[in-house]
């Protein structure tokens, strides 16, 4: 089976700063991957390159064989780190919008998730709390039938109960044909859900292993290992 995401010697420099420094990695289908690292380690830069929001300084990246661009965007569902939706819109408007925009969007799935989280489709975004807005964004992203879901800090801003629901949704949406890559600091909350983790430090990959390999070899959770590796 060929890899869904493949990058070779990928670098991104911002002036003298090496946000990504010669990264090579491949991720297969049907995986749930944690992209972990301290602040400014390059997590968001990497995700943005995958989404064609940034272009690499050097190196190559391919998603299902495509360079980031129109074709890759059709199969990538992206949750940015910040809210980009228009505040005046109703949730139902945004759903129609997404449904027009993405051929793989399922309205039914979106409304079903809204109902489960008790969010009213007729409400406008500006009347919602920060946490509820984040839930709406995640619902939109997970309602697509994508091959790659790139979630930048999906659980950072919501309460523990909603966090559980989000993880539950990620597990429930699992498909052998799709891969989820998510970045987060909240490792202990998510490590049971992950197949593999990638540790980034100052733009470089320090470790890329499965969760159970790490536990087997070190006798430690990914969370403890992270604290050890990135000890300040």
């Amino acid at each position: 089976m060929s890899n869904l995401l493949e990058c070779k010697n990928l670098s991104k420099h911002f002036g003298p700063v090496k946000a990504l420094d010669n990264i090579s990695l491949s991720v297969g289908c049907g995986r749930i991957v944690g992209l972990l690292g301290p602040n400014a380690s390059g997590k968001s830069t990497f995700i943005k390159i995958c989404n064609h929001l940034l272009t690499p300084t050097s190196g190559e990246i391919r998603i299902s064989g495509f360079h980031p661009g129109v074709e890759s965007k059709k199969i990538v569902s992206y949750l940015p780190e910040r809210n980009y939706l228009n505040d005046w819109m109703k949730v139902s408007d945004i759903i129609s919008f997404f449904s027009d925009f993405y051929s793989d969007f399922s309205k039914e799935k979106a409304y079903d998730m809204l109902k489960k989280l008790n969010i009213h489709a007729g409400d406008r975004l500006k009347t919602m709390s920060k946490g509820t807005k984040e839930k709406v964004q995640l619902i939109l992203v997970m309602s697509r039938e994508a091959q790659l879901y790139l979630l930048d800090e999906p659980i950072g801003g919501v309460d523990p109960a909603a966090r559980d629901y989000i993880l539950d949704t990620i597990i429930g949406n699992y498909s052998e044909n799709a891969t989820v890559i998510l970045s987060t600091h909240l490792i202990s909350d998510i490590e049971k859900v992950l197949d593999e983790v990638i540790f980034l430090r100052e733009g470089q990959i320090v470790l890329h292993q499965t969760v159970d390999e790490i536990r087997e070899e070190t006798g430690k959770s990914v969370d403890s290992l992270f604290r050890e590796v990135f000890k300040c």
Binding site: I32, D164, D195
Partner: peptide, 14 residues
Amino acid sequence: VRDLAQEASVNPNT
């Protein structure tokens, strides 16, 4: 598998 994974909050492959 999916239901069990959800119940235990673990990765479906695991």
